[in-house]
Simulated scan of single mutants.
Amino acid sequence: MRKIVAKGDGVALAELTDTDHEWLTEHNDNAFDVDRDGRDMPFQAPNHRLAVTTEDGGELLGQVNWHPVNYGPSYGCVAWNFGRQLLPHSRGKGIGTEVLRLLVRHLFDTTDVDRIEGGTDTTNVRAQRSMEKAGFTREGIIRGAQVRDGKRQDLISYSILRTDPRP
């Protein structure tokens, strides 16, 4: 059984089991995955992951991940950058918004970082609405941030600060 880290309205964040990565890979449609170009990353930031499950932890619905990004020479310049991936059968049901609310609460409750940020594809209108419903502020376009299907793709940047009001 998965260990639940945070619970919300019909959904939970849980520790991934050894077999979850494989299962998620098999059931993902890779709708917004980026191309791998074969080059090694010039640095490796720690990447944290949790499963998105039903409230009881029984069914996998997707996953979330986050890693630190640095905007200056001190801890006060660190933000969490997150990603989320919902399986096709989990999309369009409001789960993504609740997942973001849980992730924000979890990160602000368990870390001292004051900024959480993420981006979404300019064509992913559902994700944009979900971020706004979860209290994130749209910041702008990050031009050519990802490569998908051999083409540079723009992202829309969103963030939430510890001091921002929550919906």
Rank of each mutant, 00 (worst) to 15 (best):
E15M: 12
R143T: 14
V11A: 10
G150C: 01
E98A: 07
C77P: 01
G10K: 11
G58L: 07
P88C: 14
P73H: 13
N47K: 11
G62Y: 01
C77H: 15
D33R: 02
K133Y: 12
I160Q: 00
S130Y: 02
D29E: 05
D112E: 08
H67R: 03
F32W: 10
V52I: 13
I4Y: 10
A145T: 03
T123A: 14
R91K: 08
I142E: 10
P68N: 05
V11Y: 04
N81V: 04
I142D: 08
S159M: 01
I156R: 06
W66P: 09
P46L: 08
R101P: 00
Q44E: 15
E59P: 00
G135H: 07
V78F: 03
E98T: 06
D154A: 02
A127K: 02
P88I: 14
T163D: 11
T123K: 08
S90N: 11
I95L: 13
N70P: 01
P46T: 13
V11E: 06
L161M: 00
N124G: 11
T17I: 10
P167D: 04
V113F: 10
G58D: 14
R138D: 00
T122H: 06
V11L: 09
P167T: 06
Y75F: 04
P167W: 02
D40Y: 11
F82M: 11
Q85Y: 03
A79F: 06
R49S: 00
P46E: 07
R101L: 02
V64I: 15
D109Q: 04
G140H: 13
H106D: 06
E132Y: 05
A134P: 04
N30T: 03
D29Y: 00
T111S: 15
V69R: 15
A45Y: 04
E98V: 05
I141W: 03
L50A: 09
S157I: 02
P68G: 04
H106Y: 14
R138C: 09
Q153L: 12
G92T: 15
G62T: 02
E26V: 11
R166G: 01
T97S: 15
V99K: 09
T163Q: 08
F43E: 15
L13C: 07
W80T: 08
